[in-house]
Design a protein around this nucleic acid. Structure first.
Length: 805
RNA sequence: GCCGGUGUGGCGGAAUGGCAGACGCAGCAGACUCAAAAUCUGCCGGGGGCAACCUCGUGCCGGUUCAAGUCCGGCCACCGGCACCA
């Protein structure tokens, strides 16, 4: 009898061996095909590894290990996205430098990851908070600045009235501060912005050339929100003034019965003197600006507004005079901040018109516009629209746009929902922005040779009362000289957002110790693009979009060899608590991976997380399920007691083995780890039924299972096969011809219902199969005296006899 | 409101339009044991029948097809994201 399977004895042993042998260290090797597998690097929080982390890591570890066995040179790196708020908050609370907090957390995380046996190349480890790393983050920022893609702008920020700090959008939950629950107001502040909107079209277009799961593509496209329409000028009556609007429905121009401008629209101030009810409008604007995000969403349905007295506009298509209103449902930040309102064919305009008794004119026939806005553009023809009458919406849109362009009162225009990226944070624990503000020269970049611009030691990490970064209090750091004129100047005190470091980390992995460039050309040429990147859906419109933007910019500067960074992108589902709810301390349903490893072993945790369900869907944790996976590994372990003297695959199980190799190989690539493991379980069950396994059969099983349960399979390999390590072996191959049985059981149906089964040769001809089927007593009986209308034979699967009375 | 996803046994979940429920969990029975646990073996959707079998069954209603969990049309429920984007 073999000794008992004891993960505790085995797992540490192999982790140490892999370390010592530098088993997964890679370099540029042009004799082999390269494969770059990437998982999102974690934020090293104080809580340590969550049971959700191992799911994507194990998945990509499996792919990496399999690819190595298939002869690829695989880069599978790991690092730390370590700047960020929780660390800073922890530092404030406990008066420990964030650097120390980060160091401790990273150490803890790394130990946990090592205990799970991942085949990361730890020589490529990066940490976004290392000077030698953020030096290059700053360097890329300077390139963006030099190309005019980084600029400073007055922007409203989210300001917590209680904490007195600026908050990122993600930190505002339902209009209140995520940390203290106090009201969040908008406050104007000068912010660094990145012009991601310049890349809006490229970011959409690039999606056509990459293999991302559809969900991700759709989300990114929706987020960028491209729309095609026209800008149209409306004359203001009795003034040498026009009001420019944006519309996606120029075809409905004849239905515009009033106009609406946003409360912040400059027109109001410009004609202050002529507006009869200026005070009323100013009061409305004041009220609108005070609305918190929470109120804005809550009150979204209830339209408010004020008509501007003394100002009216002329609809350019029919010269009709129409009123101009002010309402906060028109946003200054989109389009031109002014719209033409077509209540018959836009639900928001319809709501507004109904509330204020404005006329509703139908211009696309097909609905009942007095009762409901008719917004269907697919059906319906134009009416009440002069030269557009009778046209389809699409044709009318084109015709009227041409007409506007000819008359010089309008033109085609593409708009995006995507806004420029607010890149400033009034925080300590982030990359300092390498810019100096000089009273003579304006914003001046640091000389690249000055990088990295290090974070200074500060007394307090607390943001100041004014909402400035704690760096602002460091006068001796702030006060500097202008790199351009040498005069007195001040450093920028805002830092970069957490998304900065993660926007290019996959490039640094390639050549992490390079002090001349962020990575060498040669290494970039060899490794890029990332072949497969797996990460969370929650990063689709943030990290994933930001990093594509940076990468496209670097490509345009000739600094990287390809325009899209990731060839393939997949996403994993969340791991929920046993009760099906999101794991959280307050719900008391958190599972600690360390405990699972301790009780069952890392291989069991890995197997379970892959077996738990479809990889892209969320799945609830089950301790009973974990036990089942441990049982499976125990059964594989104990197969050693059933080993027979013979080698090769025995004929009675050969087909099953070839089928299993095929299924496991394909399922690993298709992220169907649960069915791959199920197939191996089924094979193991067969060995138990036979109560025997040959050496070669065992070897194949061990290698197939190696990517999932690397420690146990290495141990077994060493015990029985010895020749090198399991991870160094060739991935098992299957013979397509041997994956099919020569005789198969088919179902014989009558009128679609199974009545019997029949063994036939796979290549047996149809006539012979039919003949055999009709001899079956049940079939003969049921078809007796009936008219056989037709018989359908699907090779090796089914014979359906359609019989009628 | 818009976009996306998911609905299959007691549970997690399998099924290129071709025998629904693979594999696992739980449960039941047997073997081993003084006994229990562990392990091994077998059974395991509902209803009916002594039985061989019959019959119903993949959220709901309809359709296409020799054949539908799968395709089409119309709903419902739950989960996630976005949200006055003209």
């Amino acid at each position: 009898m073999s000794k008992e399977y004891s993960p505790k004895d085995i797992e540490k042993k192999w982790q140490d061996i892999w370390d010592k042998e530098e088993a997964f260290k890679v370099g540029v090797d042009k004799t082999k095909p390269k494969y770059y597998a990437l998982v999102e690097f974690p934020y090293p929080s104080g809580q340590g590894l969550h049971v959700g982390h191992p799911r994507p890591y194990t998945a990509m570890d499996i792919v990496s290990r399999k690819r190595r066995m298939q002869g690829y040179n695989v880069l599978f790196p790991m690092g730390w996205d370590a700047f960020g708020l929780p660390t800073e908050n922890y530092a404030i609370k406990n008066k420990i430098h964030p650097k120390i907090v980060t160091k401790n957390n990273v150490e803890h995380f790394k130990n946990q990851l090592k205990a799970l046996g991942y085949s990361f190349d730890w020589t490529k480890e990066v940490n976004t908070t290392d000077e030698n790393y953020y030096k290059w983050t700053q360097w890329i920022f300077l390139q963006l600045f030099k190309k005019g893609l980084a600029y400073k702008s007055e922007m409203p920020i989210n300001f917590c009235t209680s904490c007195k700090v600026g908050l990122a959008n993600e930190e505002v939950v339902n209009g209140v501060c995520e940390r203290c629950g106090s009201e969040v107001i908008r406050k104007m502040q000068s912010q660094w912005m990145l012009k991601i909107t310049d890349y809006a079209d490229k970011l959409i277009e690039g999606l056509d050339h990459v293999d991302y799961i559809e969900k991700v593509k759709v989300s990114q496209k929706n987020w960028i929100g491209r729309s095609e329409g026209a800008e149209v000028e409306f004359r203001i009556k009795d003034k040498d003034e026009t009001l420019l609007i944006y519309t996606t429905r120029p075809d409905t121009l004849f239905g515009a019965t009033y106009m609406v401008i946003s409360p912040e629209h400059p027109l109001i101030e410009k004609y202050k003197a002529e507006i009869g009810n200026y005070d009323e409008i100013a009061a409305y604007r004041e009220q609108a600006s005070k609305k918190s995000d929470f109120e804005r969403t809550e009150l979204a349905k209830d339209k408010t507004g004020v008509c501007i007295n003394g100002i009216s506009a002329i609809n350019p298509v029919n010269n009709k005079e129409i009123p101009v209103w002010v309402s906060d449902y028109v946003l200054m930040s989109y389009g031109t901040g002014a719209i033409m309102a077509v209540p018959a064919h836009d639900t928001r305009d319809w709501d507004f018109a109904k509330k204020f008794g404005l006329p509703i004119i139908e211009v696309v026939a097909g609905g009942d516009v007095q009762n409901e806005a008719f917004t269907d553009v697919a059906t319906g023809k134009l009416c009440n629209s002069d030269f557009l009458n009778g046209m389809e919406v699409k044709d009318a849109k084109e015709a009227v746009t041409k007409w506007l362009e000819e008359k010089g009162i309008g033109h085609r225009k593409v708009n995006f929902k995507l806004r420029d990226w607010v890149f400033s944070r009034q925080r300590y624990w982030g990359e300092p922005i390498p810019i100096v503000k000089c009273p003579c020269c304006g914003y001046v970049p640091l000389d690249e040779r000055e990088l990295p611009l290090r974070l200074p030691e500060v007394e307090s990490y607390m943001p100041t009362d004014t909402g400035e970064s704690p760096l602002a209090a460091m006068r001796d750091w702030v006060e500097t000289t202008c790199p351009k004129c040498g005069g007195k100047a001040e450093r920028e005190t805002d830092t970069m957002p957490q998304w900065a470091g993660s926007s290019w980390y996959f490039l640094r992995y390639i050549d992490p110790d390079n002090d001349k460039e962020f990575a060498s050309k040669e290494a970039l040429e060899y490794w890029m693009p990332v072949d497969w990147y797996n990460g969370g859906m929650e990063h689709t419109t943030l990290h994933l979009l930001y990093s594509r933007f940076w990468h496209k910019f670097l490509y345009d500067q000739n600094l990287v060899p390809c325009d899209e960074p990731y060839r393939k992108r997949t996403s994993h589902g969340m791991i929920l608590g046993e009760n099906g709810e999101k794991m959280s301390k307050s719900r008391g349903n958190v599972v600690n991976p360390d405990d699972v490893v301790d009780e069952f072993g890392a291989d069991t945790l890995r197997t379970y997380e892959m077996f738990i369900g479809a990889f892209d869907l969320s799945a609830a944790w089950s301790m009973e399920g974990v036990k089942g996976c441990r049982r499976f590994l125990d059964r594989v372990w104990k197969l050693q007691d059933m080993m027979t003297e013979g080698d090769g695959y025995r004929s009675e199980i050969e087909t099953k083995i070839h089928q299993t190799i095929k299924k496991v190989s394909n399922d690993f690539e298709g992220l169907k780890f649960n069915t791959a493991i199920a197939a191996m379980m089924a094979l193991v069950n067969d060995f138990y039924k036979a109560n025997s396994i040959t050496k070669d059969e065992y070897a194949t099983l061990i290698l197939l299972l190696n990517p999932v349960a690397p420690h146990m399979t290495e141990e077994l390999w060493e015990m029985y096969f010895g020749n090198g390590r399991a991870y160094q072996q060739k991935w098992p191959e299957y013979d397509e011809a041997k994956t099919v049985e020569s005789t198969v059981e088919i179902a014989v149906q009558i009128n679609g219902k199974v009545k019997a089964t029949l063994m036939v040769g796979l290549d047996e001809d149809e006539a012979s199969v039919k003949e055999k089927a009709h001899v079956i007593p049940v079939i003969a009986e049921l078809t007796a005296g009936k008219n056989i209308v037709k018989e359908i034979y699907v090779k090796g699967r089914i014979l359906n006899i359609v019989a009628k009375n």
